[in-house]
């Protein structure tokens, strides 16, 4: 007999834990499709998490907190956007610096919020009942239906992003900038504007993901709440071959690993500190597996990824 309670709990947690990953990864896919690597995702997330909590406490409306959290992530990403897109600075170092800034800022500004209860303000399940099924199946049904609206929204986001990237002129322009900014420019695209907007969009989604982390999952503000989730989200982008829909699958795999490290606590004879390593080691393994088939990776990767573009005057 399967322990349906345990399995249900595992599925429930996985669906929930996947939300920040899906949002942040899809955001990073959009940014990277424009040719800009944004390693400030972790920073945008942590800022979104804090602002999400703060605004929810102030307004009493978690949807508002969620949205403003996204804007906060966008604001932080705009620093990265400005420095890398306009100044053409090193994208990797800039991203690291932005994350450092974000982590530090939230530690400083978030002290008043540490441990503040969000009682009654957190996202609540859309359908809190589970009638009409045998008792032993109830946990399984609950795992699928007892979620708040954002969990379901997060499934639509990758579809929307696919539409945006592949079916609209904006998306074509974004991909053109990621393939060859100089060609894009001569096609009449404002490369700076497109790349900047893609980074902002990515930051917004990362901020939303962060806000869900504090509002939907942890339920309060804790310093350093992301604990590497943002970095893992960046890792999932290559694993998804820069395809928003694949992000969904990648996020569920990763979220399952994260949920496993919770579920297994106290159930197996392994220290919780070792269980905490599971997501990190899992990410390392995922990234390694992806690179074994490097050829496929090359197919998906934007050609001009990480390459700055400055409309300079130079020798032909």
């Amino acid at each position: 007999m399967i322990d349906t309670f345990l399995v249900g709990n595992f599925i429930f947690l996985t669906l929930k834990n996947a939300v920040p990953l899906v949002l942040a990864s899809v955001g990073e896919v959009i940014a990277e499709r424009s040719g800009i690597i944004n390693l400030g995702v972790e920073g945008s997330m942590v800022v979104g998490a804090l602002v999400g909590v703060a605004v929810t406490l102030m307004s009493g409306n978690y949807l508002l907190g969620f949205a403003v959290g996204g804007l906060a992530g966008l604001l932080l990403a705009s620093i990265h956007g400005f420095i890398t897109v306009v100044f053409g600075a090193n994208q990797i170092v800039s991203g690291i610096a932005v994350t450092m800034t974000g982590l530090g800022l939230t530690a400083l500004l978030g002290r008043g919020y540490v441990g503040r209860s969000l009682y009654g303000l957190r996202p609540s399940p859309l359908y809190p009942y589970d009638v009409g099924v045998p008792d032993y199946l109830k946990p399984l049904l609950a795992a699928l239906v007892r979620h708040d609206i954002i969990v379901y929204l997060s499934i639509i986001i990758p579809l929307l992003a696919t539409w945006l990237l592949f079916k609209t002129k904006y998306g074509n322009s974004v991909r053109a900038c990621g393939e060859s900014p100089s060609v894009a420019e001569s096609l009449g695209i404002n490369v700076i504007l497109i790349r900047f907007s893609a980074v902002l969009l990515g930051g917004f989604l990362a901020g939303l993901g962060g806000a869900y982390l504090s509002l939907g999952i942890v339920g309060t503000w804790v310093e350093n709440i992301t604990a590497g989730i943002g970095w893992i989200a960046v890792g999932l982008v290559a694993f998804s071959m820069w395809m928003p829909v694949r992000v969904l699958m990648a996020s569920y795999i990763m979220a399952a690993l994260i949920s496993m490290s919770y579920i297994l606590q106290g159930k197996v004879g392994v220290s919780s500190y070792f269980l905490a390593m599971i997501p990190y080691i899992g990410t390392i393994m995922i990234l390694t597996i992806v690179n074994v088939e490097r050829f496929k990776l090359k197919l998906g990767a934007p050609t001009a990824l990480g390459r700055p573009y400055i409309r300079e005057e130079r020798l032909g």
């Binding site: 609209t168 002129k169 074509n172 053109a176 060859s180 096609l187 009449g188």
Partner: peptide
Amino acid sequence: PMLIDKMTVAENLSISFRKLGYFKSP
């Protein structure tokens, strides 16, 4: 040629076609 290799002819041409709105399908 100033074209994006990994995109189709129509996608390439949509980019530079100014009359097309940004969120319109090419």
